[in-house]
Design a protein around this nucleic acid. Structure first.
Lengths: 171, 171
DNA sequence: TTGATTGCAAAGCATTTGCATGCTA
DNA sequence: TAGCATGCAAATGCTTTGCAATCAA
């Protein structure tokens, strides 16, 4: 227990501070959801996380996961992302730097990238408008290298590939 | 009639070509929806457009507007955008260059901007990954200049302001 | 003890689908 | 005439809300 507790020490402190500051309460569900969330290295929907939480504690409800994910977003521990399949995904910053996404519309693969230059230009752009940015989202859709080279092929998706995200319409 | 027809000549040709190429049919509803869409200089939801179309032809159904907006997106005449209020907005390119958005989370104002430098860096970034981008979306959330200067105030939204978008959660 | 939290069921919303009818090509 | 398009109603799917019971501070 003590080892795991230490692992997310900082994140738990951030959550705790956010709760106290907002006059909210620390609960076992919130702790558990945060822990499982941080432990998972994928883009998760509320539903995905709900299922993972269920394994540890079947009494936790769907609603609580939804509400907690919003809470974690407010606390700055989670970030909402959309890839175009009309679902809301969440990702955390634990052991990850800030990044943006490229989404392959053929196989659904998501590539994470970061460009300090783009970030700087964004800030500069915002400044031009007297706009004070709190956060942003940059997404590129298109074909990843594999799907590109197959594009002459019959396949529209990589053969046997299990797309993480099936992009239906761009949102 | 002939004057209006000329106004969107190019766009109508694009739609027509797309329809023919896909083995689809030109209909009065599609023409009407396209015309009203192009004539409106705002970010429209399907619902918004539906209401506008209703004024001209009350027999047109909601479903048709949804379907046509998807069609126009496929044809490259419309673009889907999300500002964070869980609604899908559409914008057209008619008399507009490509641009990105800044969304004020206090008053909901949407600022359109364009940066050739950012565009270039995006392409370069994609190239690094062998990724061939077809389109992208860049959004910045934060406080616009007016809401910034009021931030010491009691108001969280501009007094009497009618926000175009009420940003609930970032998506 | 007080008021936030939870989980369930029900409600909300935006969007999609089934299907019979109507229309383009 | 064939089969795409339309509009209605019903169905979806994700997310939120109402509420009584429970729990943290």
């Amino acid at each position: 227990m003590s080892i795991e507790d230490d692992e997310f020490r900082d994140e738990k402190a951030i959550l705790l501070e956010h709760l106290q500051q907002a006059g909210l309460r620390r609960t076992g569900q919130r702790d558990l959801i945060l822990e499982i969330f941080l432990r998972t290295e994928e883009h998760l929907t509320s539903e995905d996380l709900y299922r993972l939480v269920q394994r540890k504690d079947p009494t936790v409800g769907h609603t609580t996961v939804y509400r907690t994910l919003k809470l974690l977003t407010d606390a700055g521990l989670a970030r909402e992302v959309r890839f175009g399949d009309n679902k809301t995904y969440y990702e955390h910053h634990y052991k990850h730097d800030h990044h943006d996404h490229m989404i392959c519309t053929a196989c659904g693969k998501v590539i994470e990238f970061y460009s300090a230059e783009i970030e700087a230009l964004q800030d500069q752009m915002a400044d031009n408008f007297g706009f004070m940015p709190t956060h942003h989202s940059l997404r590129l859709w298109g074909l990843c290298s594999e799907c590109r080279s197959e594009s002459g092929d019959i396949h529209t998706t990589a053969p046997g590939a299990q797309p993480r995200v099936k992009v239906k319409s761009v949102v």
